[in-house]
Design a protein around this nucleic acid. Structure first.
Lengths: 217, 217, 217, 217
DNA sequence: TATGAATGAGTGTTCATTCAT
DNA sequence: GATGAATGAACACTCATTCAT
C-alpha cells in the first residue's frame, strides 16, 4: 500500500520490491554515515549494487528514496513491536515486558531512529504527513497496551502522555547515546525508566528482581 | 571563549561580535524555514544585511555558521534557564518552578531546539563534541537543581536519569508538537509531566492547585 | 525505395511497413505537440503501441524515426497534390484549381509542415539531402503545371521563381498562422494570393467570382 | 527594456549587457552549427569566454539564452531595416529601395533567421508571444512603407498580404538557399520578386534597368 | 573592511541504446 | 519477433568559496 505512491518505470512488482529493498538498505547504510543531504544518488546506486540509471527506473526523485527509507524503518519498528504485544491476558508484567522489548528494539535500531529524527523534515509536506501518521499509529499501539494492562488506574489524557513519554524515552536512548550510554548500561536504563513509570503510577515494582529480561529482544 | 575557535580575517573584536550576531540571527531565521542544507551562504549574507564577501571575512566555512548558530542557541537556553535557578532556599516548590520555567522556555524556543536536533550531526567531530559538552552542562544544571531541592530521596544515578528525562521532555514538547500540541495545552503538558515526576519520587503534589505558573515564563 | 535505407533487424517486409507506419503516426502526433528533441523514443514506442525494444527492431537510431516521419509527410503532400493535377487540357482555370488545391492541402497539413521546417536540420547530411531532393520534386510538379498552363507568357527562370513563391506561400499559411489566420480566412488568403499571381502575370482574373472552390480540397 | 525580463544575480547593468552580448554571440555561432538543443550550456560559456558558473550569473535557464539570442536577432534586423526607411518623400522608387535593402539584409543574416524559424517554438509561451509581437512590428514597418509609397492603389487587406509576402520571400532566400541559390544570384532573385510585386500592383517597372542597387546593402 | 563577480567541482536527473530472456 | 530492465554518458543547474578592486 505504501510503495504504490512511488512511481516506477518498471512493471514487474516483485522486481520493484527487490530493487527497492536493495536501494533502501544501501541508503540506510549511507544515511547513517553522512545523512541524507551529504549522500549522493550515485553513491546509493553503487551501494545498492546497480547503476544510477537503474536507480531512477525505480524512483522519481531522491526524496522518494528518503521516503522509502523512512517508511521502511517505521515498518520494521512497528512489525517487531507488534510481535511482542500479546494482550490475551493483560497484566502489569505484560506491560513491563512490552516496554522492555520496545527499549531493546530502540537499542538495536538506534541509528535508524536517528535518521527518522533528522531527515523527516526534508520530506515534502504530503510524505511527511504520511510518515507522521505512521508514527501516531505506533504511539497508539503503546496506548492500547497501557489501557489494557493498567485499566483502572489512569485517565485517557494520562495514557496519552505516558505513551508519548515511553515512546520518546526509548528513542532517547539512541539519539542521546553519547551521554546516556556513558552513564548507564541498557539494562540499568530500562530498569530505571520502568521503575519511575510504575512509581508514577503508584504500582509496586517486584522488590527482589530487576525488570530487565536477560536475553535481549 | 567560543568564538575564538572560529577564525576571522577581521581584527576588531567588537566588529566580529556584531557581524556574527547579525549572521547568526539571519541564519536562524533561514534554518527554521529550510534547514541548514537547503540554506545558501548567499541567503544568509543577504538576510544578515551584508555581502557574501563580508560573510567570509568573519568565518571560514559554512559549517562555521552552523556552529555559531548552535552555540548561540545553547547560550540563550542556558542563560535564561540559569536566571530562573535560585538555590538559596531549595525546596520542592523551587524544583517545580525551575521545571516549569524550563518547559516554558522550550515552548518559546521550539524551532531553535529543532535546529539543534536536526543539524548537530552536520558539524565536524570537533565542533560536535564541543556542542555536546555544552549540552551536558545544561543537564548538569538540572541535576544540581534536583540534588539541591530533593536531596535525600534520590540516588546519583537516578538524578542523572531524571535530569535527562526532564531535559528531553522539554524538547519533546517542541519537536513532537504535531502530536502533543493537538492533545495538550502547554499547561496541561507541564502539569502532567510534573505530576508524574513527583509521584515517581513519592512526593505529594499540592492537592488544590495546578503547578503551572499563570504568568508565562 | 525510401525505407530500404533504414536498416531493420526484422526480415518480414510487410511487418516492417506496418510497424513503421504505426511508429510514424505516433511520432507525428508527438512531434506536433513537443517537437523532435523533446519527444522520447519511449514515448514514441508507447504511442505506437509497442515496446521500446520492438521499436529498435525496426530502426537504428532516433534520427531514423525523424527521417521516416519527414519522408512520410512529403509522401502525403506529394501524393495528394499529384492527384489534383490533370494536365490533359491545360488552362489558366486548371492552374488556378491546382493552386487552390495545394493551399487547401497546406491548410490541412499545417502542423506536419511545421515539423518539416523545424526538424529537417536535425537530420544528418545524407538524409537531409535526400529529403531536400524530394522537396525539389514537389516544386518541379508546380513548375510543370505552370509551364503547361501558362506556356507562352513566362520565362524559365520566372517559372522557377513562381513555383517557389507558390510553394512557400502555401506553407506560410500554416507556419505563420498566428498572424495570417487572424487577418484572413483561408478563402481570402487564397483569393488574394492567386489574384496577385495572375496580375503579376498579366492575366485577367474572372471579374465576377472569387477563385476559391467552395467545397474544400 | 527587453533584458530586464531575464533575471541576473549580477547587479552592474553595464557588465550584464557586456556579458550577455558575449554570451549571445557565442550562442549564435553554436546555434548556427548545431541548433539550440544540441548546444550545451557549457559550450556556450566556453565560446563566450567564461565559465559555466559565470554564465549562470547572468541568466536563469538555458531557455533564457535562446530568448536573448532571438531577441538580439530581431533587434538587429529591425534596426538595420529601420535605418533604410526614409519616408520623407515617398515614391515607388523609395519602396523598391526598401525592399532591396531588406532582401540584402536577409541575405546577410541568413543563418540567424534560420535560428528564428527553427527554435522559436522551444520558447515558453510567454517568451514566444513576446517574440512574435516583435515580428509583427517588423511586418508593420513594411506595411507602413507600402501604404506610404503606394497609397492609392491598394486596399488595407492587400497591404497586409503584400507585407507578409515580402517578409517571407526575404526569409525564404535564406532558409531555402539550397534550392534558390542554385537557381538565382541574389540580384536575380531580388529583381524577379520586385518585378512580380510591381506587376501584381499594375506598376510599370523602369524598362531599361534592373532594380538592384549595385553596391550591396 | 567591504564588495560581488568569477569559478568549477559536484549534483540530481534524463534518455538513447543494448541485450538477455 | 517481442519485451523491458539495465546502462552510463551527458546534461542543466547550484553553490561554497576566492580574490581583485
Amino acid at each position: 500500500m505504501t510503495d504504490k505512491q512511488i512511481l516506477s518505470s518498471v512493471k514487474d512488482q516483485e522486481l520493484i520490491e527487490k530493487r527497492r529493498t536493495q536501494m533502501v538498505q544501501g541508503a540506510i547504510t549511507l544515511f547513517k554515515e553522512k545523512g541524507f543531504h551529504r549522500t549522493t544518488t550515485r553513491e546509493i546506486a553503487k551501494e545498492a549494487g546497480f547503476s544510477i540509471g537503474t536507480l531512477y527506473e525505480y524512483i522519481r526523485t531522491k526524496e522518494d528514496i528518503l521516503f522509502l527509507v523512512v517508511d521502511s524503518i517505521h515498518h520494521q519498528v512497528r512489525d517487531q513491536l507488534e510481535a511482542k504485544i500479546n494482550l490475551a491476558t493483560p497484566s502489569v508484567a505484560n506491560f513491563v515486558s512490552v516496554i522492555q522489548s520496545y527499549f531493546h528494539l530502540m537499542d538495536d535500531m538506534q541509528e535508524e531512529v536517528l535518521i527518522l529524527y533528522q531527515e523527516v523534515k526534508s520530506l515534502k509536506k504530503e510524505s511527511r504527513e504520511y510518515v507522521l501518521r505512521k508514527e501516531r499509529d505506533m504511539i497508539s499501539m503503546l496506548e492500547r497496551v497501557i489501557a489494557a494492562c493498567l485499566p483502572d488506574e489512569i485517565a485517557k489524557q494520562d495514557v496519552e502522555l505516558l505513551a508519548n513519554n515511553i515512546f520518546v524515552q526509548g528513542q532517547m536512548w539512541g539519539f542521546r547515546r553519547w551521554i546516556l550510554q556513558k552513564q548507564f548500561t541498557l539494562e540499568e536504563y530500562i530498569d530505571g525508566q520502568i521503575n519511575y513509570l510504575l512509581k508514577g503510577l503508584n504500582i509496586k515494582a517486584q522488590p527482589d528482581e530487576g525488570f530487565t529480561q536477560k536475553g535481549g529482544v
